[in-house]
Amino acid sequence: MIVGQQKPLEEIWEMVKDRKRLLVLGCNTCVAICHEGGNKEAGIIASLLRMKAQKEGVSIKITEGGIERQCEEEFFAPAQTDIDEADAVLSTACGIGVQFIAAFWKDKPVFPALNTTFLGGVEQIGVFSERCQACGSCVLGRTGGICPISRCAKRVLNGPCGGSVDGRCEINKEIPCAWQLIVDRLKELGQMDRYEELSPLQDWSKDRAGGPRTLKREDL
């Protein structure tokens, strides 16, 4: 899923303070799981902004709303009335949701309430961590199911680098070294002989480097 994190309230305020009727619009899928941008969090951000507006003596009508998904037009209908009444939208979706809302309601400014942070999963309650950078040519089959591109600070494909100590990455003792994890996993799988296979140059043309990516399914 996509993980996001709310921007500081001050930063949000600076973006929206000159609006007259602001709708805070939640997205109840990925960013609801990390409790940062779901419909419930949209309501909380709206309340905080109302308090802020009152404190600053600024008159804005701030309402709240939410839909299941902001990255697909099919889900937009329930938000139509709310958006028609607003002069701007503060979206608590990931960057994708923000852009789809902006593309659909062409006359409304749309602002992001979150910083979209990574593609990850729920490691334990309240802890979310990155697992993939959508590189477009997955190497997990060679690396014991652990992604060196998203989990190694230098995305080395033939790791570890010389900075791996006690299973931790050189950049931060809180972060496990991806290559320690890979070696441990290959050992568990009885595949240590695979460690010496040289990983060839990665094809980054399928990654961000190749430009915006699209997937077309003729069958749909």
């Binding site: 080395v156 494909l157 033939n158 040289l198 990983s199 980054w204």
Partner: peptide, 12 residues
């Protein structure tokens, strides 16, 4: 950071 290739790949 770039890390288009790694040190092993640079050797190659």
């Amino acid at each position: 950071n770039v890390h288009d290739i790694d040190s092993m790949q640079l050797l190659q």
